[in-house]
Amino acid sequence: MTKTPPSQVRAAWRAALCSALVAGLLAACGSGHEDLRQRAGTDHYADGRFHNLDRDFALPDTSDVLAFQWSRLTRHMPAPTTDITPLVPDLGWLQGNRAEPSATWIGHATVLVQIAGLNVLTDPQFSQRASPVQWMGPKRLVPPAMSVAELPDIDVVLISHSHFDHLDEGSIRALAAKGDPLFLVPLGLEPLLREWGAHRVQALDWNEQTAVTGRHGVVKFDCVPARHWSRRGLFDRDRALWAGWMMSGPDFRVYFAGDTGWDESLFNALGERFAPVDMALLPVGAYEPRDFMRNQHINPAEAVKVFQALGARRGLGIHWATFDLSDEAPDAPRRVLPAALLAAGLPENAIALTRPGETLRPRAPVSIDLRGKSPRYPKRQWAKGEPR
């Protein structure tokens, strides 16, 4: 193993510290203020911070975090690569579809969900980096399958939590400028989104619900518990809530997990309340090393457990192959997830691993050409002026 030169190590640490300081300054200057004492449930909010339902939840302490980051900085590891390239989505079909439920993976945790005539977008992240600045931080390995400009008119945007790979300022500003979607967020994030130009923002606590009328009926949006945490800067740990979302149309139900660790009682309770789920959008990446990640990210085997607890009929794997956030290879789920499904007695494609741009149509009567008919080139390049 080749030892990293000390000068490179010092440079990497300076870059990491600079990024953290910038994040802290941005959070301190623009996070807004919201009195949550009258809104938040007492079972998960105390002393100005949110907590998981499992009070034994614990993230690695500061020394573990520093050790993890030091290990990633100093190991002589090849640059992460993936052979995954986006498909050209059928933009014409997506623009016109108002009747058939579908899910199109754009990249990372960003999915275009079509349900009851509504276009719903989850955790929009269209930027080159998952970072408070676009000159430093985790860089995309795979471009998004479509740009904000190419999206159909978005009715609802769902945000799961505040981490930079799930809540991106440039993407929110671009969506707010393009139309007037309703942003549904967990408690504590409403001031930040309004600061970024979002006009219609509704913050929900766990187990609160709102409804939006689509062309083919009412869709109920339930903010549901997750096992995670939140932070954007140095001093705002757990000041905003994290959550999953359940979307229930007249005859189709979709679960979006956001980020979560495995919690048997939590997911059994969700299953008792919502099963069966027609489509589960489940994170399957960023799970190694296990002792560091287990409380905050499920691995593929645990994604299968969530799938089973919800009585899910179909699944879509998300949160993989986009950013290098952990120790497993970005495309490791391609190998690990099918094996976990077979071990659980399920078809190896019960939770699909698609290429970005591919549309899952659970009710499509025949197989379709998923490459679509868009005149765009399948290989996109970043263009000057695109959302950050």
Rank of each mutant, 00 (worst) to 15 (best):
A99V: 14
W135P: 02
G92R: 13
S147H: 03
R75H: 12
R72A: 15
L118P: 04
T104E: 10
T82Y: 07
P124A: 05
V111W: 08
I154N: 03
L151M: 11
L94S: 01
S147K: 02
Q128S: 15
D90H: 09
D83K: 11
D155R: 00
T74R: 13
S102W: 05
I84P: 01
I84D: 05
G117S: 08
N97C: 14
T122S: 14
P78G: 11
S131R: 01
P89D: 09
A99L: 14
V111P: 06
D123L: 02
D83M: 07
V148Q: 02
N119C: 14
V65S: 04
L66N: 06
R140P: 03
M77S: 15
V133R: 15
Q125S: 12
L151S: 08
D153Y: 01
V142L: 00
V148H: 02
V157R: 00
G137E: 01
A130D: 05
I106A: 08
S131C: 04
F126N: 02
Q95I: 00
W105Q: 03
I106K: 03
V88A: 15
E100C: 10
F126R: 02
P86F: 02
V113K: 03
M146H: 02
Q134Y: 07
V157D: 04
S71M: 07
A149Q: 10
S147E: 11
R140L: 07
L151A: 07
G96V: 00
T74H: 01
T85I: 06
F68Q: 13
G92A: 15
D153K: 12
L66G: 04
L112F: 12
M77L: 15
S127T: 15
L112W: 13
L87C: 13
V157T: 00
V65M: 11
M146F: 13
Q128P: 00
W135A: 06
V157L: 05
G107S: 12
W93F: 15
V65L: 10
A67Q: 10
A130M: 04
L112N: 07
V120K: 00
R98T: 15
L141A: 05
T122Q: 05
I154C: 06
Q114S: 15
T81A: 14
A116E: 13
P138I: 07
I106F: 12
P152Q: 04
D64F: 01
P78M: 09
L91G: 13
L121W: 09
A103S: 12
V142G: 01
